[in-house]
């Protein structure tokens, strides 16, 4: 925003309050109310106004406070933002970034804790990012803003506390490029969001058991870096996919399909999936923790894949 007047942000409570997760704190003071726009509680209009400004060549970043509320803007995202370019036969571009966050771990209950990123991967015309570290957020957000398509940009609530040293200069990370967090020889864990960190914990525990785990974060779900994932599985011969969203019809199912299709002959075990149990996110902390996956679930899945091979 310091370099480009065409970038502006809007959303609920993002100005004085700095966003419900404090992500936009200080921005009002620096950029003023024209470019840091508090909006009414109107998800359709927030996204739709972003679409209209983007069609005029601006690069708006709109915030949907909780990803649960993308449901309210679904029509604008799916029928409008994703399709204007297509329906116009290539005349229009909609360079809009829709930032949102969610996830369990603090008992917000069933309407503030879902993980819905997979829904948008199913829509041709949209790009989907799920960033899991501070440097990834920074580099991917830059690339999302300067991408000529509409990007859904997911952040996880419990990861906001992560700290990382940052260089002064922003280093853009291209969309569609996975990150290998940890190299390993025996099992590949493809994880997104909070589960990247759970997978890293599980990998450390597996190492104690003599199992070497590679952890890959696709970071961009659409387009997907199939090459990196498949290459990793061809190296390890085993694959676990892990995310916090429910397992059924989840993003992991797509990754599993990609892996079995492109690395079938390399696989020594069925692809294991880790995700939430098929339930809304409950309030009571004990139930919430029961529903969502943890490092122990990833570790169990790792053990199942190596167990199949007689280890």
């Amino acid at each position: 925003m310091r370099r480009d007047d065409d970038v502006f942000i809007m959303g609920e409570d993002i100005a004085e309050m700095g966003g419900s997760m404090a992500v936009t704190q200080g921005m009002l003071a620096e950029f003023g109310p024209e470019r840091v726009r508090n909006t009414p509680i109107s998800e359709m209009a927030i996204v739709g106004a972003g679409i209209g400004a983007a069609m005029q060549g601006m690069r708006p970043v709109v915030e949907i406070m909780y990803e649960d509320f993308t449901t309210l803007a679904m029509e604008q995202i799916v029928n409008q933002a994703a399709k204007h370019r297509y329906m116009s036969g290539g005349q229009l571009k909609v360079p809009l970034t829709i930032r949102t966050q969610g996830g369990a771990g603090w008992s917000p209950g069933a309407q503030h804790a879902q993980q819905v990123e997979a829904w948008f991967v199913h829509v041709p015309g949209l790009k989907v990012v799920f960033a899991s570290t501070p440097s990834d957020v920074r580099g991917l957000l830059w690339s999302s803003i300067y991408d000529d398509n509409t990007v859904l940009f997911f952040e996880h609530r419990v990861l906001y506390g992560l700290k990382e040293e940052m260089p002064d200069e922003i280093e853009p990370i291209p969309l569609g490029k996975a990150r290998i967090h940890r190299e390993g020889e025996d099992v590949t864990v493809v994880a997104t969001g909070r589960l990247v960190h759970e997978a890293l914990k599980a990998a450390a525990a597996a190492e104690q058991e003599g199992v070497s785990v590679e952890v890959v974060d696709p970071r961009t779900l659409q387009p997907l870096d199939e090459e990196t994932i498949v290459a990793s599985v061809k190296k390890t011969s085993r694959c676990v996919v892990a995310h916090e969203a429910v397992t059924r019809m989840g993003f992991g199912a797509e990754v599993a399909a990609v892996v079995q299709h492109q690395a079938f002959d390399w696989l020594d075990a069925p692809v294991e999936r880790v995700g939430s149990k098929f339930a809304p996110i409950p309030f009571a902390p004990v139930m919430e923790q029961f529903v969502v996956p943890h490092d122990s679930d990833v570790l169990d899945a790792i053990r199942r894949t190596v167990g199949r091979n007689g280890r």
Partner: peptide, 15 residues
Amino acid sequence: GGLPAMTGAALAFKL
């Protein structure tokens, strides 16, 4: 479906 985008185009003109 088109009303929000025209609102946004108008926002761009104003900005």
